[in-house]
């Protein structure tokens, strides 16, 4: 079976530093894939490659069978189909939460503010932020900012969502509210790829867990297999450190 998003032998280096070294990964529609591994193992870069923020050096990435890694391809329409949320939120500080969310639909999809008012309001309400729409990012807590960032990505109605360690910068008491959002999306059937350090969350919800080390996927499988009976010694060593 071909997945919705299909990575084949993906290589990526920054100068002399090889970050991805032949990654194969298949993400099925409606699936949730968690990438785990130590810092610097290549998880973030892999996500940025999927979203075409970084061009890959070798290999292919297919979205619904289309090769989106072809050099020279216009990345813009592809990016609107694959949303990404960053560890550091990256909200636009000079815009209110609602303006952050509406910018791309207006400029890329050509929607008017009037058309957007109702759906955007609904999005904010869905994630418990109806009363924060007119706040600026610096008036929001970290957890609220990260939820606005998720809403911003969702407002483009992407087919796939990428999450790059989105709870790592949060105070511990704020992690829960963001994970709840992910849980909700999972139940709604969104196709998702996460780079995460939240092992219990991955164990609870992921369809597939991939362990990355040195730019390769060393081991992948259903969470119960990876967490309960890892085959590779390096996976075992990593899990012993973090669990």
């Amino acid at each position: 079976m071909r997945g919705k998003l299909e990575l084949t032998n993906v290589w990526k280096s920054f100068g002399d530093h090889q970050v991805c070294r032949g990654v194969d990964l298949s993400v099925g529609a409606g699936q949730m894939v968690c990438l785990i591994g130590a810092s610097g193992s290549g998880k973030s870069t892999l996500l940025r490659c999927m979203n075409l923020l970084e061009p890959i050096d070798e290999g292919t990435i297919h979205l619904d069978g289309q090769d989106i890694s072809e050099p020279g391809l216009d990345a813009q329409p592809i990016r609107t189909r694959i949303g990404i949320v960053f560890q550091s939120y990256n909200l636009f500080p000079h815009m209110t939460a609602a303006q952050n969310v509406m910018l791309a639909p207006r400029r890329v999809r050509g929607k008017t503010p009037a058309e957007l008012a109702a759906p955007v309001q609904a999005l904010f309400a869905r994630f418990g932020l109806a009363d924060r729409m007119d706040h600026y990012p610096d008036q929001l807590s970290g957890g609220q900012q990260q939820r606005v960032a998720i809403i911003r990505a969702l407002a483009m109605s992407p087919e796939i969502m990428l999450f790059d360690e989105i709870t790592s910068a949060l105070d511990p008491e704020l992690v829960g509210e963001v994970l709840d959002v992910l849980r909700q999306l999972r139940h709604e059937g969104m196709t998702m790829v996460l780079a995460t350090h939240e092992m219990s969350f991955a164990r609870e919800l992921a369809d597939t867990v991939c362990f990355l080390d040195g730019g390769r996927i060393i081991e992948q499988g259903p969470p119960e297999a990876i967490f309960a009976a890892p085959r590779e010694a390096r996976t075992r060593a990593f899990l012993e450190r973090v669990l």
């Binding site: 329409p77 960053f86 990256n90 636009f92 791309a104 990505a153």
Partner: peptide, 13 residues
């Protein structure tokens, strides 16, 4: 640069 990344990831030109 992360501001440009965020904008690009949303499909902005």
């Amino acid at each position: 640069q992360s501001q440009r990344s965020a904008a690009a990831s949303l499909g902005l030109s």
